[in-house]
């Protein structure tokens, strides 16, 4: 179940990352939150066979080395990674960033509010939405065979 899988947070700002952790704690979210400080580190994490794959990625846009847009472009071109939903969490309200993110296949674009209570509300909504939404299983060829077997039974 996606409920047990980790969530990957790609965020360079320590204070912002701590705020996400705090929101997780306040909402009693039990999924492990893995944090990468930029797109490059996140890609290293995702391409390591041993790392548990996240069911959701929370992505900041303005980061050093590899920014959020570059990261999105790479993972959405990767067949193994492109099915993981990516929700942009940013302070950028620029129309250009919104359009580019959706164009590259982001599954959400949330502007980080200054107010903590509102931020918690957003995290709560995002998590609830991605628990309501079904997701494909990671090892899908096997799952497909199972489904077909079940259908012909």
């Amino acid at each position: 179940m996606q409920n047990l899988k980790p969530i990957l947070l790609v965020e360079d700002d320590h204070v912002d990352a701590m705020t996400v952790r705090r929101a997780f704690r306040d909402l009693s979210i039990t999924n492990i939150l893995i944090r990468s400080v930029n797109g490059e580190e996140a890609l290293n994490y995702l391409s390591n066979e041993k790392s548990p794959k996240p069911f959701l990625i929370l992505l900041d846009l303005n980061m050093p080395k590899m920014n959020g847009i570059e990261f999105l472009k790479i993972i959405k071109a990767d067949d193994r990674l492109k099915k993981i939903p990516v929700v942009v969490l940013t302070t950028s309200q620029e129309k250009r960033d919104v359009v580019r993110s959706f164009d590259l296949g982001a599954a959400g674009y949330m502007v980080k509010p200054v107010d903590y209570a509102r931020f918690v509300e957003i995290i709560d909504t995002v998590l609830l939405y991605w628990r309501t939404s079904e997701l494909p299983k990671q090892d899908s060829p096997i799952a497909d065979a199972e489904v077909q077997a079940a259908a012909t039974r």
Binding site: K83, P85, G105, A107, Y129, P136, K137, A143
Partner: peptide, 11 residues
């Protein structure tokens, strides 16, 4: 689910 997420659905 596999096909639709492969095609980039947002839920």
């Amino acid at each position: 689910k596999f096909d639709t997420f492969g095609l980039g659905v947002a839920g």
